[in-house]
Design a protein around this nucleic acid. Structure first.
Lengths: 178, 178
DNA sequence: CGCCGCTATTCTCTCAGGGAATAGTGGCCG
DNA sequence: CGGCCACTATTCCCTGAGAGAATAGCGGCG
């Protein structure tokens, strides 16, 4: 069960909906989340139906093309409940491109390259951090926007701290890699 | 170009290698990174070869099955250079399951559920943070291990800060979502 | 009347992720 | 000395994610 599938199940708890509506709801509820393409909504709904977690709840046609309503089933509610009850594995493996890039830069090109990358990345992160802070304090920002921005901000800040300490260790790291 | 593909290109700058060797090098250089299955190494190498970024550099057989050596090409070196020159987009969208779970918990079940989740997740993160700190200061930890652990640690810490502030805002957020 | 834009869905293609299957070689143990 | 296990090395298969293009009906507008 992917993240998207669980979110769709969650959105369906507010009542039967069709694919297009779900995609709109996803965008509205999780505006800063990874974009979800229409194609994926229907694909995911198909898998959920196949697995008995959602069921067709009629079709209608109101001034437009056919649309198929889907409703969450009891099995779907159970799966959703399990997902909500389960804590996310806290960073079992660092899936960050930052670390990979530093290591590869050291292997392929030496410490100058790694230092250059770290410095450039730090500048980009700092700029983005400023943008997000502005966005968060901008008038008209909903609380949902604020907590989403906050999450991005704390992670950018985390990266920045790591970038700084790693920059200080590049020489030493280079010796170890060689 | 996926992350894995770029890392493989980077590893090949140390000289021609075959798939199995590359997988070992990957595990050695990026021990805390997302695990890379053997199957994927060969698949990725195939695509790299198709795109002219690596080339076959002979086959040999030394006490074992056939093995195909691959070498990076000039085009491959160019692509790798571009990748290293490019800063990673700093958190363009929050791809965190934490945020999604909180929002879905609120929609599907109300603020009690969201609070329960946040509390449980905070406990799990705190425990993991302690583990990683121990691991980092353990004797025999290489500098590579330390910077990998550091990256995980700063992000766990970031999550914890977010979990705390979000916990304080659950009631307000619930009103907004309803 | 023809075209644009919106709703709604389907289709297609490639890649990622994972696991199992195959195959050769060397060493160990009974 | 025959069988079995471990290791090296690769291939194959299947599901699902991701991204986009294609289709199709309907309403409005110039």
């Amino acid at each position: 069960m992917s993240l998207a599938a669980n979110v769709l199940l969650g959105l369906l708890t507010t009542g039967p909906q069709h694919g297009y509506e779900l995609k709109r709801a996803y965008d509205a509820r999780l505006p800063r989340a990874r974009p979800l393409a229409f194609g994926q909504v229907y694909g995911t709904l198909g898998r959920l139906q196949r697995d008995g977690l959602v069921a067709e709840a009629g079709r209608d046609r109101e001034g437009g093309p056919d649309r198929t309503l889907f409703d969450i089933t009891d099995a779907g509610r159970a799966v959703l409940g399990d997902w909500l009850d389960t804590v996310e594995p806290p960073a079992p493996h660092v899936s960050s491109a930052l670390l990979a890039k530093v290591v590869v830069a050291l292997i392929a090109d030496g410490d100058e390259r790694a230092r250059g990358y770290l410095t450039a990345q730090r500048a980009a992160h700092t700029a983005r951090l400023r943008e997000l802070t502005a966005l968060k304090t901008a008038p008209g920002a909903s609380l949902g926007d604020v907590i989403a921005a906050d999450l991005a901000i704390v992670h950018l800040d985390a990266d920045l701290r790591w970038l700084r300490t790693t920059l200080d260790r590049v020489a030493e790291l280079h010796r170890e890699v060689r």
